[in-house]
Design a binder for these strands. Sequence first.
DNA 1: GCCAACGTTGGC
DNA 2: GCCAACGTTGGC
Length: 139
Amino acid sequence: MKYWLVKSEPDAYSWSRFVSEKKATWDGVRNYQARNNLSAMEVGDPVLFYHSVKNQAVVGLAKVVRDAYPDPTVPDDPRWVVVELVPVMAFDNPVTLARLKSEPLLQNMALLRQSRLSVMPVRPDEFELILALAHAPVA
DNA sequence: GCCAACGTTGGC
DNA sequence: GCCAACGTTGGC
């Protein structure tokens, strides 16, 4: 089992919309590194959902329900793929970017080191810590 | 609103 | 193949 994080600007596609639609086809990725990460996802993998730009925080947990397949929005361009995600749970306490940056054990996260990457792996220890922070009262 | 980071494009 | 110009992302 691998762990992941995807980013979305809430003005473009928010967690609340994801929850109301119950499933998302994660399309529009046009970066090779992000594409490679999508391709490596497997059904059942947990995925952290991060709001970029506004309300910068990990706001909930999703999971992969369909492995990568060619992006149907660009049928003539075989380079790009999508996966399908469903929401698992909203976090009681969204883990803000500031909180992530203040946590010594998270300093090597791809999220902090490569701010423009939109689909990235999360180490198991990082994932567990973020889940713990999401359930803990705000300090 | 600004700007740093960085990926892409196109001229040479 | 190099690199300057340009566009986009996303933090601040």
